[in-house]
Amino acid sequence: MTTSLQRTGKEIAEIYERHKDMVYRICFAYMKSNTDTEDAVQDTFCNLIKGAKPFESYEHEKAWLIRTATNVCKNSVKHWWRKRENLEDYENHRSPDVFEIDETFQVVMGLPRKYKTVVYLYYYEGYDSAEIAQILQKPQSTIRYYLSQARKILREKIGGDENAQ
């Protein structure tokens, strides 16, 4: 197998260091299992290496990683062997006592998969719906719809003003 390698190990490590938490959270939102999350994070950064994609800025780099991590997870959860294992349940497994899971996080993780990434990018990373739409390459109206649906669920289960910044 020929591997394209245009970045040095040091550069890869720096990119990993810059975005490791964000990529891990996005993957965790999809995979839920710690071990599958690790696989997905690994695959995401491996794609970075193989693609050898040049980035115009750190923001560009970050956006690319968000989208790639999302696609890696989507591909992973729809993979044929996972379907055979009954994906919906298997992917919800995780090793116990690794993170402190509070009530809010349980509610967030209970959201439909397509909403979780959007919620993370909006509330945690601070992107607006237009930016999320651009990153995830979805219509902005879809992103807004996802957010509104997620807010409704969160408001019911967590309470508070959904518009609070």
Partner: peptide, 9 residues
């Protein structure tokens, strides 16, 4: 939400 996500790393 930010607080809960920050614990996941």
């Amino acid at each position: 939400i930010k607080d809960s996500w920050s614990k996941i790393k």
